[in-house]
């Protein structure tokens, strides 16, 4: 396991430099949008942290899958995994190291985002409104973190299972979108079976319910279906797949 090496290997490429630059711009822009502009458009002219955090979660739900899938599957797609395995033939060690790298990069981005959210909320409330509101700080942080953690786990699992950047990104970004749409349709149709099927595949909602402490055993189903199963298959494939 050499996560420092994988972190360096991830950060020293042009693709990552471009991705991180765009990500930072997006995070700053959405923090400003959420925290600074809130008092100007809300009736009570306050800046609420919960809303800023929610707005910042939008770019993060795109950035996290891209970062996670690129770290886990990127080398399979561009073929450089061959050199990695030639220099580090212990495949399980490489995999664990890459997972740690992805978690560290995402954790830094998320921490930075929430720090910016808090700062923007405070500055926006104090400068442009009637003050900042941090009353729901803990619950907002918990639910958003749970949702983003679910996004990270799902992205890692599909990146690992598919071992392709394009397919991994399609699944990691596209699937939650499909489930979100299906959830709306289920609510409109009122079909219990359809609702249960969607609920069984809605990892983000399950994660937020889990964070609220209201989860039942049913909320563990998306975790098993969308994270554990693909991850188990991915680990098996990672160790057996021929390279070259």
């Amino acid at each position: 396991m050499r996560p420092a090496l994988d972190l360096r290997a991830h950060l020293d490429t042009r693709g990552t430099a471009i991705l991180l630059t765009i990500s930072l711009i997006a995070i700053v822009a959405f923090a400003a949008l959420g925290g600074l502009l809130q008092p100007l458009i809300t009736p009570d002219e306050t800046s609420v942290f919960e809303i800023t955090a929610f707005i910042l979660a939008l770019p993060l739900s795109l950035i996290i899958p891209i970062v996670a899938v690129m770290i886990i599957a990127g080398e399979w797609s561009d073929g450089s995994i061959q050199n990695t395995f030639l220099q580090r033939p212990g495949r399980t060690g490489v995999l664990i190291s890459k997972v740690i790298t992805a978690v560290v990069v995402v954790a830094v981005l998320v921490a930075l985002s929430f720090a910016l959210a808090a700062l923007a909320t405070w500055v926006g409330g104090e400068l442009f409104g009637e003050g900042a509101n941090f009353d729901s700080f803990d619950s907002a942080l918990a639910s958003q973190l749970a949702m983003l953690a679910a996004t990270l786990l799902f992205s890692l699992a599909v990146g690992l299972a598919l071992q392709s950047t394009v397919l991994g990104l399609l699944a990691a970004i596209g699937f939650p979108f499909v489930i979100g749409t299906a959830s709306g349709i289920a609510a409109i149709t009122g079909s219990e079976t359809f609702t249960d099927v969607v609920r069984a595949l809605d990892l983000q909602t399950a994660a937020m319910v889990l964070a609220d402490g209201q989860a039942t055993a049913f909320e563990l189903l998306p975790l098993a279906v969308l994270v554990l199963l693909p991850a188990a298959y991915g680990v098996w494939r990672w160790n057996r797949r021929e390279v070259g």
């Binding site: 050499r2 090496l5 360096r8 290997a9 020293d12 490429t13 042009r14 693709g15 990552t16 080398e75 561009d78 073929g79 450089s80 995994i81 061959q82 050199n83 030639l86 220099q87 580090r88 070259g244």
Partner: peptide, 24 residues
Amino acid sequence: VMLDAGALHRGRTGLETLRLAART
């Protein structure tokens, strides 16, 4: 071992490629 020179990461500089290999 050199099996496929195309397997080197295209977004990394030549020197960084070797530095990374040296560190590994």
